[in-house]
């Protein structure tokens, strides 16, 4: 009789409609993708490629922007099914806004990661594997979220089909006190390396800087020279 929205694994708005629409696997656009998140003292650097494909065998889009602002000081990458990732991001954004208007304060990044993990596990979003990067009063945070709802915090993380190539470079170059400028150049090189060898990644670069000031996204056609970054 009385309305109580108490399921912590479901988004508050719009879940039922989407669940009906899990389309047929063959024609689902996937991002393939290499997405990278690196936490630094100044904020979080996120880098992604720009390709969407059908199973990594046909390039269905060459100018996808696979990172979006979902919170005043947090961004998320689109990895896996494009439809699943897009609705996931929209739904989280609605939740973030409701939380802020109801409680008069922004959701912490840990709360946002927890919510994202819950939705990935119990919600209507299928086949996604995003990175969440954000800044709050506790500092910079990078999380990877897997399709079963696993939430893992890290200093740096990579998801998508090009992850192994990108990790190869990061394992050699990343260090504890990495700064934003260095992280930007390193992540751009890692995405470019992945694009060379992974058929699901390519066509350009998007960089996103998340600081306490906000989220700043820059799109590149192709891969810029290091001095252009």
């Amino acid at each position: 009789m009385m309305l109580d929205n108490t399921d912590p694994y479901e988004p508050e708005l719009g879940a039922a409609e989407w669940r009906e629409q899990a389309g047929d696997e063959q024609n689902v656009n996937k991002t393939g993708t290499t997405t990278i998140g690196i936490a630094t003292d100044e904020g979080v650097l996120i880098a992604t490629d720009r390709r969407a494909s059908l199973g990594g065998r046909f390039v269905s889009n060459k100018q996808v922007v696979k990172v979006e602002e979902i919170h005043p000081t947090a961004a998320m990458t689109l990895v896996g099914s494009v439809g699943g990732a897009q609705s996931f991001i929209k739904s989280l954004r609605a939740e973030v806004n409701l939380y802020e208007t109801r409680r008069g304060q922004d959701m912490s990044i840990e709360a946002l990661a927890t919510l994202a993990g819950n939705f990935a596990r119990g919600g209507p979003f299928f086949a996604i594997n995003p990175i969440l990067g954000g800044v709050d009063e506790d500092g910079s945070h990078v999380y990877s979220i897997d399709p079963a709802g696993g939430v893992m915090k890290d200093d740096y993380t990579v998801t998508g089909s090009g992850m192994m190539v990108a990790y190869g470079l990061l394992e050699g170059e990343w260090h504890e006190d990495i700064e934003m400028d260095e992280a930007r150049r390193l992540a751009a090189r890692a995405v470019e390396s992945a694009a060379e060898r992974d058929t699901g990644s390519g066509n350009g670069l998007v960089l996103c800087e998340v600081t306490e000031e906000g989220v700043d996204i820059t799109e590149y056609d192709g891969f810029p020279d290091e001095d252009e970054l």
Binding site: S108, T114, L115
Partner: peptide, 11 residues
Amino acid sequence: LRYDETIGVET
């Protein structure tokens, strides 16, 4: 469960 946070008294 939803946010991994203790609930605020006002909320």
